[in-house]
Amino acid sequence: MNQPAFVGTIAYVARRALWLAWYNLQLIFIVYPAEGFWRVTALLNPRTWSYRRRVRAKLEGSVSHHGGTYAVFAMFREGELSPYTLSAIDSLNRLKVNIILVSNTVLTEAVQEKLRSRCRYVVIRDNIGRDFGAYKDGFSVLRETKEEIQRLVLLNDSVVYLLDGLDEMFRQFLGDNDYAGLTEVHDRHYHVQSFLMSFGASVLRDPRFLNYWRRYIPIGTRRWSIHKGEVGLTRMMLDCGFRPKLVASLERLKVALENDEKTDNIPALLPDRFAPAAYQSTNPVPYVLSVFGEKNQIHVGAFLLTRYAISPLFKRDIVARGVYSPERLKDISGILGLDLPMLLQQQEIHQRRRHTSWISRILFRFGSI
Rank of each mutant, 00 (worst) to 15 (best):
residue 2 N to A: 13
residue 4 P to E: 12
residue 6 F to G: 05
residue 6 F to N: 10
residue 8 G to S: 12
residue 8 G to W: 05
residue 18 L to C: 07
residue 21 A to R: 13
residue 26 Q to P: 04
residue 27 L to C: 01
residue 31 V to C: 07
residue 33 P to H: 06
residue 34 A to I: 09
residue 36 G to D: 09
residue 42 A to R: 14
residue 44 L to R: 15
residue 52 R to Q: 11
residue 58 K to Q: 14
residue 60 E to W: 03
residue 61 G to F: 02
residue 63 V to I: 15
residue 64 S to H: 11
residue 66 H to E: 14
residue 70 Y to W: 13
residue 77 R to T: 12
residue 82 S to K: 08
residue 82 S to H: 11
residue 82 S to V: 08
residue 85 T to A: 15
residue 85 T to E: 09
residue 87 S to E: 07
residue 98 N to E: 08
residue 101 L to M: 14
residue 101 L to T: 06
residue 104 N to E: 08
residue 106 V to M: 10
residue 106 V to A: 13
residue 112 Q to L: 11
residue 115 L to K: 07
residue 118 R to I: 11
residue 121 Y to Q: 14
residue 125 R to G: 11
residue 137 D to Y: 02
residue 138 G to L: 03
residue 138 G to Y: 01
residue 145 T to Q: 12
residue 155 L to W: 04
residue 160 V to M: 00
residue 168 E to A: 05
residue 169 M to N: 01
residue 171 R to C: 06
residue 175 G to P: 03
residue 178 D to T: 10
residue 183 T to D: 04
residue 185 V to L: 08
residue 187 D to T: 10
residue 189 H to K: 15
residue 199 F to R: 00
residue 201 A to I: 04
residue 207 P to S: 08
residue 208 R to E: 11
residue 210 L to A: 15
residue 212 Y to G: 01
residue 214 R to Y: 05
residue 215 R to I: 00
residue 216 Y to N: 13
residue 217 I to V: 14
residue 218 P to L: 02
residue 218 P to D: 04
residue 218 P to R: 01
residue 219 I to A: 05
residue 220 G to Y: 07
residue 221 T to V: 07
residue 225 S to R: 01
residue 228 K to H: 12
residue 229 G to Y: 03
residue 232 G to K: 13
residue 233 L to D: 00
residue 233 L to Q: 01
residue 243 R to F: 10
residue 249 S to T: 10
residue 252 R to P: 15
residue 256 A to Y: 04
residue 265 N to S: 05
residue 267 P to T: 13
residue 268 A to G: 04
residue 269 L to E: 00
residue 270 L to M: 12
residue 278 A to C: 08
residue 281 S to W: 05
residue 281 S to L: 08
residue 284 P to E: 00
residue 285 V to M: 01
residue 285 V to W: 01
residue 290 S to N: 13
residue 292 F to N: 01
residue 296 N to A: 07
residue 300 V to W: 04
residue 304 L to M: 09
residue 307 R to N: 03
residue 308 Y to Q: 11
residue 313 L to W: 05
residue 313 L to N: 13
residue 319 V to T: 10
residue 322 G to P: 09
residue 323 V to D: 00
residue 324 Y to P: 02
residue 326 P to K: 08
residue 332 I to N: 00
residue 333 S to Y: 11
residue 340 L to H: 09
residue 342 M to W: 03
residue 343 L to Y: 10
residue 344 L to N: 03
residue 347 Q to W: 02
residue 347 Q to G: 05
residue 347 Q to F: 04
residue 351 Q to H: 14
residue 356 T to P: 08
residue 356 T to I: 15
residue 358 W to C: 03
residue 358 W to P: 02
residue 360 S to Q: 05
residue 363 L to D: 02
residue 364 F to S: 01
residue 365 R to G: 05
residue 365 R to I: 14
residue 369 I to D: 09
